[in-house]
Design a protein around this nucleic acid. Structure first.
Length: 656
DNA sequence: AGAAGATAGCTTTTT
DNA sequence: GCTATCTTCT
């Protein structure tokens, strides 16, 4: 064993070490919250490399770019200085990025051209709208697109399930449009890769030769098409290692199916399973309180997390009369935490829905607490970025209808809605539009695009953006004399910088840049280096940890959310969501709730979340307002009246 | 073509 | 009550 090997194993506990060392065959790692999941996965990759598995034969799949980046960094950190120079880092990226690489190599085999576009949700809605127009249906394009996307994610593709006739017709037309416009929507990136490998055994065989080892992070988030892709690719060598935690499956609403994880041993009968149950993150009280909550779920693996950490302070559960009082209390707690030397980046406020963030933002502004609201502004969704990217797309793929529709009259060139509608009907063939009043202007536009396209060959991506922006006089259009225009112009410059760094790191042209951009939807990263308080949804908190965590709004109707009350599966997911939130906390966990709260403008009276009843009183301190029924679920599943003697429950003294 | 007015709808979210 | 989107008006 060389020094690199020693390093790989010395940092691991026994279970983790076994999971890393079992190199051949299918491996399932059920990794509880805070049990060193990413560590195990990265060490496994490092171990494979040290065993002589070529980097080019290893594929590590994640669900987000963020997770992929983190893993890349951690693997690099594991390699010795010598190895850093000699060993290549294997493919680590999202399912979509990986599937895209397959599509790029074989686009023609499935009827697309090399320069295909990737349609994001907005583009796909536009394509759906066009399908509806062609069919002369009046339906709402967004709703229909969502339905189609839902079906695809569930694996109910065309000719597969029995869809209502009308929906089937729209779906078919929509797919036709994507093909005409030489585009894939997000879902088709996976689906078409699966289809390709199913229909072309010789191509699949080629990939068998290329990739021998697969590792998948957050396996509980896999949906059916992604699972099928894995079955195909890993089906020959069976060296597939999946890591996940069914207790933390919170993306069922987008067809992630934790049962895929539960079925792993059935799917791969040779599988070895390892449970990582030692938690390195939280105090015993936090862990036990969380366990009380999650253990009420029926569909789950059986495991019991333990920790060698101290028991710590009790979890607090506090009810307020309204959200003003709730916020005030949280604010005071934050300040006292700061006084104890816990700085802002180690504190987070979590909530179920985005609207709940507002009152905390107001609090931060008033108290001059620097904060970051995760999931708020998205760089690539800004109008000016989408506009310029649409130009690039239309230059790269002249059939990109979604992009053309977006830019043909931006900046305004006097091409009206009627002309655009007719152009769409003629599949953007401008020659068929001679009688139109704006025929000349349309002609000018297409001539301009053709000229830019010619020039694009000789330009870098950054140079091309500069050329486009100059040609269409975009800066003038933004009006940099206004604050807003100024900011937008700065965003364009930021896009140029991104293009510059991209072309210097990857040997690539416009196509690769555009594909990467389309798969990089969010640019807002959690930035723990800055002195900022974190505000985010419970979903956003997965995979993160904070010293002190506040979870606000533990009320029936909010958590569990109203929409999931009548659906048992969704209720279990709500419970997992709370579990995920609770297990983010290292030393302090505060759950808060209100008797009244303004929701959609009207005052609502809320009762405590049913999940609170499942927190064993031994690990938590409950402070409820007068008149609130106080019960908890005992070990036997029955409800008991809350017994703790607290005379001062009625009068909660609010600080400030 | 862009601003003002009307209206619907309102959970979570990555690619 | 807020806000995103559609309609209507100038």
């Amino acid at each position: 064993m060389n020094s690199g090997e020693e390093k790989i194993f010395s940092e691991l506990n026994e279970r983790q070490r076994q999971a890393v060392q079992t190199v051949a065959g299918p491996v399932l790692i059920v990794a509880g919250a805070g049990s060193g999941k990413t560590k195990t996965l990265t060490h496994r990759v490092a171990h494979l490399l040290s065993q002589g598995v070529p980097a080019s034969a290893i594929v590590t799949l994640t669900f987000t770019n963020k997770a992929a980046d983190e893993m890349k960094q951690r693997i690099t950190a594991l390699l010795s200085e010598k190895e850093k120079l000699t060993v290549k880092i294997p493919f680590i990226g999202t399912f979509h990025k990986f599937a895209l690489s397959i599509l790029r190599s074989h686009a023609r085999t499935i009827g697309h051209e090399q320069n295909f576009s990737i349609y994001d949700e907005l583009d796909s809605c536009a394509a759906t709208k066009q399908a509806l127009e062609r069919l002369d249906y009046q339906e709402n394009a967004r709703a229909i697109y969502k339905k189609i996307s839902f079906l695809k994610n569930r694996g109910d593709t065309l000719g597969n399930g029995r869809l209502p006739k009308k929906l089937q017709t729209i779906y078919e037309e929509y797919e036709k449009i994507l093909l005409e416009q030489n585009a894939f929507d997000f879902d088709n990136i996976i689906l078409k890769a699966v289809e390709l490998l199913e229909k072309h055994p010789e191509i699949l065989n080629m990939y068998y030769g290329r990739y021998t080892h697969f590792l998948i992070d957050e396996y509980q988030d896999t949906n059916k098409p992604q699972y099928e892709l894995l079955r195909l690719l890993a089906g020959k060598h069976n060296n597939i290692c999946v890591v996940g935690d069914d207790w933390q499956s919170i993306y069922g609403f987008r067809s992630a199916d934790y049962r895929i994880l539960l079925n792993f041993e059935h799917d791969w009968p040779e599988a070895r399973t390892f449970y990582l149950e030692q938690n390195y993150r939280s105090t015993q009280n936090i862990l036990n309180a969380s366990h009380g909550v999650i253990s009420k779920n029926v569909a789950r693996t059986e495991k019991k997390l333990f920790t060698e950490n101290p028991s710590g302070s009790l979890v607090s559960v506090t009810q307020f009369v309204d959200e003003q009082h709730e916020t005030l209390w949280i604010k005071e707690k934050i300040f006292s935490r700061l006084g104890e030397g816990i700085n802002l980046p180690r504190i987070a406020i979590l909530f179920r829905t985005n609207v709940q963030s507002r009152i905390f933002e107001d609090m931060c502004i008033q108290e001059r607490i620097p904060y970051q609201l995760i999931g708020a502004f998205k760089f690539y969704k800004r109008k000016e970025i989408v506009d310029i990217v649409a130009y690039l797309r239309a230059i790269h793929n002249p059939k990109d209808g979604a992009a053309l529709e977006r830019i043909i009259n931006v900046p305004p060139r006097g091409i009206g809605a009627a002309s655009i509608a007719r152009l769409k009907k003629e599949q953007w063939n401008s020659e068929k539009l001679t009688p139109s009043p704006s025929a000349n202007r349309i002609q000018t536009f297409f001539t301009m695009m053709a000229q830019i396209r010619d020039k694009a060959q000789k330009l870098t991506t950054k140079g091309l953006i500069e050329h486009v922006v100059h040609t269409i006089e975009y800066k003038q259009y933004l009006d940099p004399n206004t604050d807003e225009g100024q900011e937008r112009w700065e965003n364009i410059q930021e896009l140029m910088r991104i293009a510059e760094t991209f072309s210097s790191t990857e040997t690539s042209g416009l196509g690769e840049f555009l594909h990467a951009l389309q798969l990089l939807q969010d640019a807002d990263e959690l930035d723990s280096s800055k002195e900022k308080l974190t505000l985010m949804t419970l979903h956003g908190a997965k995979g993160l940890e904070f010293d002190t965590v506040f979870i606000s709004g533990l009320e029936e109707g909010l958590l569990p959310h109203n929409r999931s009350l009548s659906i048992p599966d969704q209720l279990e997911e709500e419970r997992r969501l709370l579990y995920v939130g609770m297990t983010r906390a290292q030393t302090q966990l505060h759950l808060t709730l209100c008797q009244t709260r303004y929701i959609h403008g009207s005052l609502q009276y809320n009762i405590p979340s049913r999940f609170l009843q499942d927190i064993p009183p031994l690990y938590a301190e409950f402070v409820y307002q007068t008149g609130t029924p106080r019960t908890y679920a005992g070990e036997d599943g029955l409800l008991y009246e809350y017994q703790r003697d607290r005379e001062d429950d009625e009068d909660i003294v609010l600080l400030g």
